Simulated assay, not measured.
Amino acid sequence: MTAARFLVVLDADSTLIRNEVIELLADEAGRRAEVQAATEAAMRGEVDFATSLRSRVDALRGVPTAAFERVRARIEPTQGVHELTAAVHERGGVVGVVSGGFHEILDHIAPGLGVDRWRANRLLLEGDVLAGAVDGEIVDADAKAASLQSWAAELGVAPHATIAIGDGANDLTMMAVAGLGIAFNAKPAVRAAASLVVGPQDLSEIIPLLP
Rank of each mutant, 00 (worst) to 15 (best):
Q79M: 11
A87R: 08
V198Q: 12
I22K: 10
L130A: 10
L84R: 14
P111A: 07
A3H: 07
R91K: 11
G101M: 06
V94I: 08
L7F: 02
M43Q: 02
A42K: 09
V57M: 04
V8C: 05
V21R: 06
P188I: 06
E90W: 00
L210V: 05
L123R: 11
L16Y: 03
V47H: 05
R70K: 11
A145T: 13
Q36S: 15
H160F: 09
L10Y: 02
L172Q: 11
V95C: 04
M1K: 04
D13L: 03
P211D: 12
R56L: 04
D27T: 06
R54K: 13
M43E: 03
G100C: 07
G112N: 11
I109A: 04
G132W: 12
G127C: 09
V177Q: 02
L7A: 00
V190I: 07
Q149E: 15
D116A: 09
D202T: 13
L196H: 14
A146R: 15
V47C: 01
V197A: 07
T65V: 08
F102D: 09
G156L: 07
F102K: 03
R119A: 15
D27H: 02
L210G: 04
V47W: 03
K144M: 14
A37P: 05
L125K: 15
G101V: 06
V134T: 14
T51I: 06
V8K: 02
V88W: 03
I138P: 11
E20Q: 09
T173H: 11
S150Q: 15
L148R: 08
G101R: 04
R44M: 00
P200E: 15
L123K: 13
D202E: 11
G132A: 12
R191C: 14
A153H: 08
G92C: 07
V198L: 14
E205R: 15
P188N: 09
I75Q: 09
P200H: 13
T173V: 13
H160R: 14
D202N: 15
V71S: 07
G132L: 10
G112K: 12
H160Q: 15
L180M: 10
D140I: 11
R72F: 01
N170Y: 00
E137N: 14
R56K: 02
V9W: 05
V8R: 00
I17D: 12
L10I: 01
N121K: 12
A37R: 13
L148I: 13
N121M: 14
R56N: 00
W151A: 09
E28T: 02
S14G: 04
L209W: 09
A153F: 06
F6M: 02
A141F: 10
A110P: 10
V57L: 01
A86E: 08
H108W: 11
P200V: 14
A37I: 06
N185F: 04
G156P: 12
A189Q: 08
